[in-house]
Design a protein around this nucleic acid. Sequence first.
DNA 1: AATTTTCTGGCACGACCGTGCCAGAAAACA
DNA 2: TGTTTTCTGGCACGGTCGTGCCAGAAAATT
Lengths: 206, 206
Amino acid sequence: MPKIVDAEERRRAVAEAVFAVVGRRGLEGASLRNVANEAGLAIGSVRHYFGDHGELLVFAMKELSRRFEHRVLAHVERLAECRDGEERREVAEAMLQEFLPLDATRREEAAVWSAFVTAARTRPELRPRAREVLEGTREVMTRVLEGARRTGALRKGLDVELESVRLAALLDGLTVQAVQVPELLPPRLLRTVLRTHLDTLTDGGW
Amino acid sequence: MPKIVDAEERRRAVAEAVFAVVGRRGLEGASLRNVANEAGLAIGSVRHYFGDHGELLVFAMKELSRRFEHRVLAHVERLAECRDGEERREVAEAMLQEFLPLDATRREEAAVWSAFVTAARTRPELRPRAREVLEGTREVMTRVLEGARRTGALRKGLDVELESVRLAALLDGLTVQAVQVPELLPPRLLRTVLRTHLDTLTDGGW
DNA sequence: AATTTTCTGGCACGACCGTGCCAGAAAACA
DNA sequence: TGTTTTCTGGCACGGTCGTGCCAGAAAATT
């Protein structure tokens, strides 16, 4: 075999180019030509690693969600190691902040993800991953709230399932709006809203 | 002058075709040809009423938000006429439900709006309207919460501005997720989450 | 050194796009 | 009736798209 080249790494590099193009020009700008150009490759090379255009988009979407999940799960693991109550609250809050576009990098990621998810409604290939991520998000919410309930931090009488849906929706709403009109949802406000919400779930202590 | 034809009405009819096409094929499917075909017109006719393609999209987006605002403001007026506390709560909740995709029609509307808003990030012509609607939404939230505060229904110690942001984000998040994966957010659940949230704002009574 | 396989780069085709342009139909006005 | 203006329908252009196809470069294998 020729040309020592790690195929998977190359695919990831191309995905990176997809993110850049989508961030700048939207998903409809992510043509093979534009992506290849962004990646500094010839269009033929890109096509060697991806069967067709749809496959490229699916891979990029999966890659984006994979990275995101990786970051979140790191927090979840740290959460499992916590014994101290105060520390639990801080780690949980840090984990939930991971869902918010608090800096330019994350805002771009969120914008790109938003583009994929919107497109997923009309493009069947993209739908499964959109659904998986939403389900995963809800599950993470359930896990953290259930954990809080076990340690007695959660207010009595709360429906954990319902609160998971509410929390997931709140985070998604904040993200979508912050991507749309960042001026109206600066990082500070995003953090405050999240903290306020968590306070209502834990009536004071944690 | 020739051809008795109400230009504005024709423009609205074309906008209707835009909604149908975007609902079915996404915004990138809303080409002049597809829209004209959907409206039963020749492409030349559509172009007579809209300077260019961008103008068509801007008009359609404005028309969609205009209709939505009209519906919401009707509720707001009814809210102003309310004297009874119980009635106020019901009308307010009905108004807030207007933001949720509770039936197929509204789900389609929300999906189309979502497509426009996502595109607005990369298309400058669409940005102003996206921002206006978000600001308007937040203002409506502030108005209804401020009203509740005046009548003593709101829990003490709540920051109305902050709660407006939180409520608006929650509604947006529920909507976006319901458009993405309707199975995970059936109308019943949407209503329950909203009601639960309002309960936490009014500690019991209203 | 010869062969095989992976990889790169690019040409060409058909499809769709927005738009400039124009000819003719249709109705109001002279 | 003739003129004018609005409206309709369509042709043709340049551009971008995904994709089929292929030739040659490059490296591992024989």
